[in-house]
Design a binder for these strands. Sequence first.
RNA 1: GCGAAAGUGGCGGAAUUGGCAGACGCGCUGGACUUAGGAUCCAGUGAGGUUAAACUCGUAGGGGUUCGAGUCCCCUCUUUCGCACCA
Length: 827
Amino acid sequence: MEYPFGAIERKWQQTWREKRIFNAPQKSDKPKYYVLSMFPYPSGVLHIGHASNYSIGDAITRIKLMQGYSVMQPMGYDSFGMPAENYAILHNSHPRLTTEENIAAMRVQFDGMGFGLDWEREVSTCRPDYYRWGQYIFKRLYQKGLVYRKKSFQNWCEECQTVLANEQVEDGSCWRCHSAVEQKELEQWYFKITDYADELLDFSKVIDWPERVMTMQKNWIGKSEGAKIDFTLEGTEVKIPIFTTRPDTIYGVTFMALPPEHPLVQEWLAAEPNNAELHDFCHKVINADKMLRSSADAVKEGVFSGRYCINPYNGAKVQIWITNYVLMDYGTGAVMAVPAHDQRDFDFAKKYTIPMKIVIQAPDNSLVLDEMQEAYTEAGIMVNSSRFDGMESEAAKAAITAWATENGWGEQTFTYRLRDWGISRQRYWGNPIPVIHCPKCGVVLVPDEELPVKLPDNVQVGRTTSNPLLSVPEWINVPCPQCGEDAKRETDTMDTFVDSSWYYARYADPKNTDKPFEPELAKYWLPVDQYIGGIEHAVMHLMYARFFHKFMRDMGWVNSDEPFARLLTQGMVTKDGAKMSKSKGNTVDPQYIIDRFGADTLRVFLMFASPPEKDVEWSDDGLMGSFRFLNRVWRLIDANKELIRKGLNNAVQGDISPEIAELRYDTHHAISRWHDDCLERMQYNTAIAATMELLNSIVKFKEPEKLNEAELAVYAFACAALPKMLYPFAPHIAEELWQALAQPELLHDSGMPVFDKVYLCRDTITYMVQINGKIRGKLEVAADIDHETLKAEALEVENVKRSLEGMIVKKVIVVPGKMVSIAAVQG
RNA sequence: GCGAAAGUGGCGGAAUUGGCAGACGCGCUGGACUUAGGAUCCAGUGAGGUUAAACUCGUAGGGGUUCGAGUCCCCUCUUUCGCACCA
C-alpha cells in the first residue's frame, strides 16, 4: 500500500496557507533570517531545475523556523525580457497577457511542491508598481553622476535585435540565444560600475561565498597596476598616453601600437582619404568578428602609419603602427611595444622586421638579441636603460615611474578590465528609460510624479523592425517637461539585469507606493542571509546586484555593504550526463512525479542524490528509493501511533535491554549528525542518510508492544524524531505523522529535534588494533580504561599476538577512543 | 596557454580534525510471503582467495612524509569550470 500522499499534501498546503505560517511578520521578537532563491523567469512551466533549486531554499527556511528564527522566504518573477516577447509573437498574443498567464500557472506549481513562500511579498519586474521604482533608481543614479551616454562600437545580437554588455557575450555569442555577436556603432546608456571597481574587488564583508565565484568576479574586474606615460606625436604637442605594467622596459620601446578605433587614427584616416592601404586595413579590422580578433591565436597584423612619436625618457623616435591586437577600450587604447620583453610585440616585430632592443638582461646573462626565439618576460637586470642600468628590474618599475612623475610626463596608475555596464536594450519588453530628449534642453529626466513611464500596450510586437516602441508615435512624441516644446521619449529599455539588481530589497517592502522600499525595513531584513542560485550568475547578476547595493548604501537606503551574506551555488539536474533540455529530449516533468509519487518524494530524491552545490543525476530508480523510504516511515508510525503516543508520556527511568540502549545511542547519534549536516555543513544528503539509518535502527524492533515502560519511552522518542528530521525535506508527510503522534503544534513551531550528549557516551569502546598500519584485531574495553592497561591488553589479543610472532615491538600508540597502533619490526 | 576544482564499488554518493574505506540509497544475487504490488520482509553484495577463516590487493597513475594517508607534500594523466592578445 502506498501512503496517501496526494491527500496529505493538499491538506498541509492548505493548512500552511490558512495559518499564514510563511508570511513573515514585519516585526518580531525573534531574530530574522532572510532566505532567497534567485527568482525565475516565468516560463509557465516549473521544470526539475526549479524544483531542485527551490527545494534547497525551502529546506533552509524550515530548518531556520524550527530553530526559532523569524524567516522570510519570498518569491517573484524576473518577467521582462526577450523570451516573453518571442513567446508572444509565437502565440499571437501580448507579452503582458502571456506573462501574467504564465505567472498564474507557475504559482500553482510552486504551491504543489509545498514551498513555504511568502506570496504576499511577490514581485514581478514587468508590473508598473515594480518597474516604476527601477526608473526612480535610474534617476538617482543619473543624478549621482553614475549614468552617462556614449557612442561606441557595441556587441550587437542580430537575433535578439539588441546590444549586449561585454559580460553577456560568451565565446563571441549571445548569452541568451547563442547566435553570433557583431559590432555596431550606437549611442548607448551606461552605468558607471567602474566607479565601484575597487569596492567590488573587496569581499571582506561577505560571510560565506564560494571561492570560485569570488575568483571569477576578481578576474572579471581584472585590476592591474602600472604606469601611464605620455609619448608625444613627432613634430606636434599631441600627447599619446600609454598604459604599461612594465615601465621597466620603457627603454626597449621600438614601436607604438594603436588600434584602428584610436581617435588619432580616425583623424589620419580623415586626413588621407586616398591612403588605400590604411583605409582598407582599418575597415577590415573594425568590421572583423570581435571574437576572432580578440582570440589569442589570431594572427597579428598591422600597417605602418608613416608617423612617429617620441619616447620621453630618451627622446627616441618611435614608429607608430596600426594593429589588430590592441584594444581601444583597455587602458589608454595605446601600447608601447617592447618586442624583446613582450611576446605579442615580439611576434609582431618579427613579422614586420621591426628592430628589437634588450633592456632586461637575464640573471645568467644569457640573452643575446640575434638568438632570441621568444620574448624574455621575466625579471632581470636593467641594461641599455641610461641612468637605470644595473638596477633590478622589479625595483626599477617604481624608480622609472617616479622619474615620469618628476618630469610631468606620467604617473603610477591602475587599470581595470571591467568596463562600464551598457544597459540600453532596443526591445519593447523591458523597463523604459525615463528620459525625454528635447531639442532645446537636451536630455531631460521624467519628473518623479510622472513615473512610471508606462510601456504602451498598442505596439506591434515582432522582430522585423528594430525596436517596437519606434512604432508608437503617440507614446514617443511628448512635450519637454522643462520647456514644453516638442520632444521625444527615449525608446531604449533597460537590460533586465537592472530589474534583478535590487529585487531582493523590494521584498522587504514590496507594496510601498512612495519609494522603492522603506529604508527602515530594508535595514531590518538585509542583507539576505542565505542566497541560492546557479553558478551561471557568478559574474553578471551577482556583480550588478553588489554594485546596486553599494549605491543604495551610499544613498542611505540600506546599511549593509553586501546584499548577500552567504551564497550557495546549486548544481543542476542532469539526465544521461547532460543538462536537461527539450532539444535533447531528456526532460522529466515534475508534475507527473508529483501526481504519481508526491512532492515529498521528489524533494527527498533531489536533496538526497548529492550535496546541494553539486549536480544531481536524475534516476527513476533513485526516485523509487525515496518513495519507498517515505512509505517505510509512514508504515512504521501509522502502525504504532497509539503505542508511540503512550511511550512519549512514559518515564524514561527504568531498566532497559542492551538492544534498546543501542537504539537510544543510534537515535541521539542520528540527531546529532542531522544537526551538524543541517546547521553547520549544509549537506542535506547526509542529513537524510542519518534519518534513514535511524529508521533502520527502529524497524529492527518487530514487536514494540512487548517493550517495558522505560524501553517504550526510548522507542517512542526515536520514532518521534523522524518527522522532525524529515520536515525540511518532506514537510507534508512530516506534519501528518507529527499530528498522528498527537502533537499540538505544527512542526515549524516545534523546535529542533534534540539530542542529549549523555547518551552519546558509551560504557565500553571497541578499539581496533593495528600493526604497522594494518588492522590485526580489535578489543572491547571500558571507556575509562587507562592507556597503559589498554596497550597491554591490545598486545594480548590473540590475532595480534600471532601476527607479532618473531617481531620486536618498537612503539605502541593509543588514539583515544579509536585504536591502538603497534609499530613493530622483524626480529 | 594561465588559473581553480575534481577523480572513491556496477551506479549516485559517504568518510567532519591523518585513525575500521565504501555509510545511506540504487542496482544485483539468494530466500520468505503473497491481498501479484512500480509491493513487503530476511540474508548477501569492492576485487582475489577460502567450506569458512586467515591472508592479499584496493580511493586516476607514480613517488614521498608518518606507527598509520582517500585525506598532507611532489610529479604525471584525465575531466570539468573560469580566463585567455587586457599591454
